[in-house]
Design a protein around this nucleic acid. Sequence first.
DNA 1: ATTATTCTGGACTATAGAGTCTAGTTTATT
DNA 2: AATAAACTAGACTCTATAGTCCAGAATAAT
Lengths: 203, 203
Amino acid sequence: MMSKNRTKSEDKRRLILKAAVRLFVEHGFTQVTMAKIAEQAGVAKQTVYSHFGNKEDLFGAAVEYKCASLKLSETLLQGDQDVETSLVAFAKQFGAFIIEVETVNTHTLCAFEAKHLPQLADIFFRLGPDTVITALSQFFSFQHQQGVLNVPQPRWAASQFLGMVMGEARLRAELNQMDDTTLAEREQYLVNCVALFLNFYRT
Amino acid sequence: MMSKNRTKSEDKRRLILKAAVRLFVEHGFTQVTMAKIAEQAGVAKQTVYSHFGNKEDLFGAAVEYKCASLKLSETLLQGDQDVETSLVAFAKQFGAFIIEVETVNTHTLCAFEAKHLPQLADIFFRLGPDTVITALSQFFSFQHQQGVLNVPQPRWAASQFLGMVMGEARLRAELNQMDDTTLAEREQYLVNCVALFLNFYRT
DNA sequence: ATTATTCTGGACTATAGAGTCTAGTTTATT
DNA sequence: AATAAACTAGACTCTATAGTCCAGAATAAT
């Protein structure tokens, strides 16, 4: 029979998760304390423990939550425009996304904790890099079938394209070395990447 | 006048540094204790403090030591062979280097601690990525002057080339997701990158 | 209204690790 | 041989934090 149980508040859960994400992404696993998370969530510490059993579980849940919210631009690759236009648009959007502070921090954090919590790296890889590479591969596959491009190895092409789009800017962003020139030249750089790419793969 | 001072042993210093590098690169800053470093170095904890004042300074010294020992292949870019041969050789050597566990761990560690210890990220960027990008830029500049390549923006070209060489494998290595196919195909992939690159930049 | 359960706030335990101190030992220099 | 400093071993202080416990307040379902 049904008990008179009060249900655990979904609101509290979300508050905790959001505070955890913000703090973990900013400072990493070890630097962040459960007390601080509770405080930022406006909740008692005991409530945190009641929703998520311990720090590691909370960390896992937070990263998963964060990854799911980092939406990637798949809409740009519909193929209803010509290839060059599509790729330039994609390069600009993804190129901006990949050097955002949030993106970089999440990536760095997952890479750092990868050995400590392998299942975390799995989740991140699947929801992040793998999703993009696969989507782009499929786009190239499609263009290959249409005869627009000649791409015998779509996954290689995706890897090459994304590698170029990240480029030096990505490395700089990771290491707090972003400078004005790199940023100012970036749009032209990305256009140049598309030219280089299409020069080889266009039929 | 000369005192009867005994000098601090350079051997001990090196032992401490090596132990610190090994542990920090493997586990990160917070996870590693001064006691463990002393133990691994076969030295008393007090000796560690006497050589390096505190944990942060030791960390800085360790990372600097490590970066200096991560020698990069500059010898490959002498230009006494034809461009394609040089680039394929470089791509293979650098492509192997960049997915080595040691390399990846050092990079991840520096990226993670970048906010906490900015001067550390500076050192790593200068000794690591920047050195390679600059060397490759100069190589392209030279080939441009020789009329072998047409590279109006050598630094962009270097960024594009290195980005492709890293590619998906680099991402996988960072996140413990390296698989057999990616590894087996890698050499052919790298040759393909050189072809794509030269197709655009060759005169 | 009753009741089961969540939530709160704060005290509490236990542990771990950075950095210090001390007393005794070794070793290079003069 | 004398000496000044480096080195060792280990005890010690202090602080931080994960996780628990508890008594009372709030709240949802019956």
